[in-house]
Design a protein around this nucleic acid. Structure first.
Lengths: 131, 131
DNA sequence: GCTTGACTTAGAGCACACTCTAAGATGTAA
DNA sequence: TTACATCTTAGAGTGTGCTCTAAGTCAAGC
């Protein structure tokens, strides 16, 4: 069988994505994932495309996008190419948010470095006094 | 009155820090802030030092430190200089977490940039076909 | 003196994002 | 065939971090 057409069980997708079967069904229920095909029986049969989409979702999630916004994005995706401009706008807004978040983290990092250095020196001096 | 010794009401601290009075009381209740002095009556009287501590807390929070860890840090801070080594360890662990978080965000940012470019080109081509 | 508004507390309620339970159906191995 | 694991659903429960409510006290302005 073509590896691209390989069908996967919910367990296999869970293992591949790091999500639990519970969470995969939850994401489908709330519309983050389109209704997965059921082949032969009532059980879900995922494709590699589905896994790709879930991995993209996880990246959106990791950047701090809310479920609400991911639902909107998923809905647009299902509506087809007509919605590309709106999706680009969403991605641009996300890009700006992530960029300013990174800037903020870099600022906080400076303070953390400063505190580590300063406190380390104080500890050193206290050690010297003891000896 | 010396500006450093200026006493502040909960409203003033709320305005200065961006937290609400509710949240300020909550943070005190759970030990993120030491019990604030009550002068003349039962009402809280904050000092500039208190505001400085709260601002530091907000930076810890912004880096994703949990309330539980902030409680631990606050407790150590109140115990004095003996706990400096443990606080340095906490800060080092936070530094590592923030650094790898920033790295991850930069990776995600690349994908977002790529998608924006790719989709923008697709949209452009669709526009050309229409005209 | 009275109203208005800010303060106090303990504790309830909320939004988010899962995470799990219960009860039943179905597939797989011995 | 029997046992057991895994699947299904709807819906309840959980952890985190607030956020608000209720009921009462207090102080300042009209």
């Amino acid at each position: 069988m073509d590896i691209q057409n390989k069908k996967l069980t919910i367990q296999e997708v869970a293992k591949a994505t790091g999500l639990t079967p519970h969470t995969l069904r939850y994401y489908e229920r709330i519309g983050l994932i389109h209704p997965i095909n059921r082949e032969e029986n009532t059980r879900r049969c995922y494709t590699m495309d589905d896994v790709g989409w879930i991995e993209f979702l996880l990246k959106l999630r990791a950047t701090g996008m809310s479920i609400k916004d991911m639902q909107r994005y998923a809905e647009l995706q299902r509506q087809g190419d007509e919605t590309l401009p709106e999706r680009v706008e969403m991605l641009k807004s996300l890009r700006d948010k992530v960029e300013s978040h990174i800037e903020e983290m870099n600022e906080h990092l400076k303070l953390i470095h400063y505190k580590i250095d300063y406190y380390s020196k104080v500890v050193e001096e206290r050690e010297l006094v003891k000896v």
